[in-house]
């Protein structure tokens, strides 16, 4: 489904990614953990080419996508993304936020796109909020709209970049529930998060990144209970505390 081979990325003198090789099969939920600055967010952005890898190859459904002859816009339609800071469009209602992608990018008829947007908002529990503007919604509600917005493009997979880190504690649950439902429906997901409860109950695999490389990879139980690396152990014990 998604495969990366030896991804490298430099920002100036900073060597942020030092060869990331990873494979995610259909229906997998991969959780990436690691200290800040370890390159997790950059790696996510390399998959949908918001950041272009300097070296290495990204495959989606067996097609290498970081090639000059493939438009990055096309790649981004295949993979949905949810951001730490929601990034809803301020001037549009919840419904318009969700319907905009299909209307503009897929040239879907407006009424069709809005009908679908309503269904998606209902699916994330926000049917009553379709006419609200982002500023009128709580953080948790905004993030759920953002998930619906990404789903509206019918993505083959979803990327989540610390989706609950900017949320007040009381709103974290509702966002994680939506994500867990999505996972149970079979969505392929790559999630950068520090929510260990979510990771251990929903993730099929966990990857520990540090210093731009994958230090350790395994099932939740392996990583949390029997980490092989000292650094993994130290990190896990810090966030489980």
């Amino acid at each position: 489904m998604i495969r990366t081979e030896d991804i490298h990325k430099h920002f100036g003198a900073l060597h942020v990614l030092r060869g990331i090789t990873l494979e995610v099969t259909r229906g997998d939920v991969l959780v990436i953990i690691g200290p800040s600055g370890s390159g997790k967010s950059t790696f996510l952005r390399c998959i949908n080419l918001l950041v272009r890898p300097d070296e290495g190859r990204v495959f989606i459904d067996g097609v290498q996508v970081n090639r000059a002859d493939i438009r990055p816009e096309w790649v981004r339609q295949q993979v949905g993304m949810v951001f730490q800071s929601f990034n809803l469009f301020t001037h549009l209602t919840a419904l318009e936020n969700v319907a905009l992608g299909p209307i503009r990018v897929k040239k879907a008829p407006r009424d069709e796109a809005e009908t679908k947007a309503r269904q998606l908002l209902a699916r994330v529990g926000l049917a009553a909020k379709e006419q609200s503007y982002p500023a009128e919604l709580s953080g948790g509600q905004q993030q759920r709209v953002a998930i619906a917005r990404a789903l509206a493009m019918d993505p083959k997979a979803m990327l989540f970049d610390e989706p609950t880190s900017a949320l007040d504690p009381e709103y974290i649950r509702e966002v994680l529930d939506v994500m867990a439902n999505l996972a149970h429906e079979g969505m392929t997901m790559i999630v950068v998060t520090h929510e260990m409860g979510f990771a251990s109950s929903v993730a099929s695999r966990i990857v520990f990144m540090d210093g731009g490389i994958i230090l350790e990879e395994g099932r939740p139980l392996d990583i949390f209970e029997h980490p092989k690396h000292e650094r993994t152990r130290a990190f896990v014990s810090k966030i489980l505390r």
Partner: peptide
């Protein structure tokens, strides 16, 4: 915000569409 522009890009919008919408 830069974030809204990034979100538009992540939906697959082109530069011109992001500008307009």
């Amino acid at each position: 915000s830069r974030g809204q522009v990034e979100a538009a890009e992540a939906l697959g919008m082109r530069h011109f569409q992001t500008m307009r919408s």
